[in-house]
Design a protein around this nucleic acid. Structure first.
Lengths: 191, 191
DNA sequence: GTCTATACGAAGATAGAC
DNA sequence: GTCTATCTTCGTATAGAC
């Protein structure tokens, strides 16, 4: 297919970022993982590593937002969160604790420069938060409460992934899932 | 003082890890930040970058655990969490969103090798969790509930720092603080 | 669109003088 | 304990052929 190697590079970059972060990922790693030809990197990404990273974040962010959006359409906001957490947990387990979050892997590697990448990171988080906040609001929460809950969900999830990966143990993830869902159910009465 | 340059390197490394992560931090950065002499790196840290990182994590981890331990002795577990979150928030604000968590900055940069560093990361998280879980238990929670709440607190905090830094905005941090403390107070009745 | 060759700098690390 | 010099490897990036 046309542009196949380009897309495979974007996907491989996202995978590598979630495993070892942005700074620790080299083009060689991306080539090796994707199987894409070495000579076409700068043909597809004239902006180099930064451009590849921005595309990888966009690709992953949109894909993830679409998944969450779908879940919010199939049920309540709480059910969507529960389903999403289950998927994240399963991905972590099946990957032997390699599958974290590529956005997080980039976010913590950025120094003060690199504003374009920083913007891509912020936009990813913001897109996710928007989708979920809309569902909480639809289910009766005030706009402010919906925003807080959505931020809380993604913060907890990112932290849970970090802890579980560090321990190579699902328990921190399970603990966070238990407490987070408990909180969401408790507050669903007091919007 | 003796060992002054060594300690300054450890502190500088911790600062840099929280700003830009492990992989993006070079010895040059550590030298520049600490003001320590260039020629003595491998005198103080024969194990190179990994050894420096392990020491930096230990130093920061113990320091942070001691702070949390002190707070749990001055008041309830919930008060300790509230105080700790306030300190983290203030550090973030005063540093213009540079002060994240060095343990997180290392955690997400590790590939599958580097088991020694991985162990140092896990031990840091585990030490923090232990201190806080003990306080929740002292305040009446069951051991299992105390463990879950402590994990939830640190996961939320790590995620909140990540989101706030990405947006260069304190609101995600404030949102998480609001919801997390709300949850802790709600469940403090049903241990 | 992909190849090879290569420039260029920066990284981690070592050796030996002082 | 610190310096300078150096080695080696690896990184991003470019140029030009095919």
């Amino acid at each position: 297919m046309r542009d196949d190697s380009r897309r495979s590079m974007v996907r491989a970059a996202a995978m590598l970022f979630q495993e070892r972060g942005y700074a620790a990922t080299s083009f060689q790693d991306v080539i090796a993982r994707s199987g894409a030809p070495r000579g076409s990197i700068y043909h597809h990404f004239p902006g180099g590593k930064q451009e590849l990273a921005i595309e990888a974040l966009r690709w992953y962010s949109d894909r993830t937002a679409a998944l969450m959006r779908q879940k919010t359409q199939e049920g309540t906001a709480i059910e969507a969160v529960a389903g999403f957490l289950a998927i994240s947990r399963e991905a972590l387990r099946k990957s032997d604790f390699r599958a974290g979050c590529p956005v997080a892997g980039v976010a913590l590697d950025l120094a003060d420069n690199d504003e374009a990448l920083q913007a891509a990171v912020a936009e990813a988080f913001e897109e996710w938060r928007r989708v979920l906040a809309a569902a909480f609001e639809r289910d009766g929460a005030t706009p402010a409460k919906a925003r807080r809950l959505a931020a809380f969900v993604y913060a907890s999830l990112e932290g849970a992934l970090m802890l579980a990966r560090a321990h190579r143990d699902l328990r921190p993830m399970d603990d966070v899932i238990t407490e987070l869902l408990d909180h969401l159910e408790r507050v669903s009465g007091s919007k």
